[in-house]
Amino acid sequence: MNKLIKFFKSFLLLELLKGMSVTGRYFFARHITVEYPEEKTPQSFRFRGLHAQRRYANGEERCIACKLCEAVCPAMAIKIEVAERADGSRRTTQYDIDLTKCIFCGFCEESCPVDAIVETRVYEYHGEKRGDLYYTKEMLLAVGDKYEEQIAKDRAADAKYR
């Protein structure tokens, strides 16, 4: 008997019609596609994108060249050279991040005692040569200057979870 029912079920294409009703229903469903250049998915304030070096409000760069980020970086993408500045403070003379090596884990940001190196929400950048993605200290500081407002806001939003 069971076999007979099964036979008629497959013979009358009932299962196939059921499948077609599912796809037919989805034909009229709303699309869930995010059409990228015009629409963007929402971002977390913890988004880890392009790196930036921050400054204090008085324009002094935050980085004190402790080299914690360089030490923690699993991809060894950070290179730091240190020297004493004229005013006697410890500063970097070279602070490079090779973005082709970087895996965007965010360890540098977490390890930084003065919130100098941060990762911003910027992810739409590109380089035409490999060298274009080798970010020097000046470039990182420029990124920081450009997005400082957003960076500060994101740090403030995240502060209560830390």
Partner: peptide
């Protein structure tokens, strides 16, 4: 287009 619509995406546009 139809395949796209049935997979809840807009297809070539």
């Amino acid at each position: 287009k139809v395949l796209g619509f049935m997979q809840i995406r807009p297809g070539p546009n």
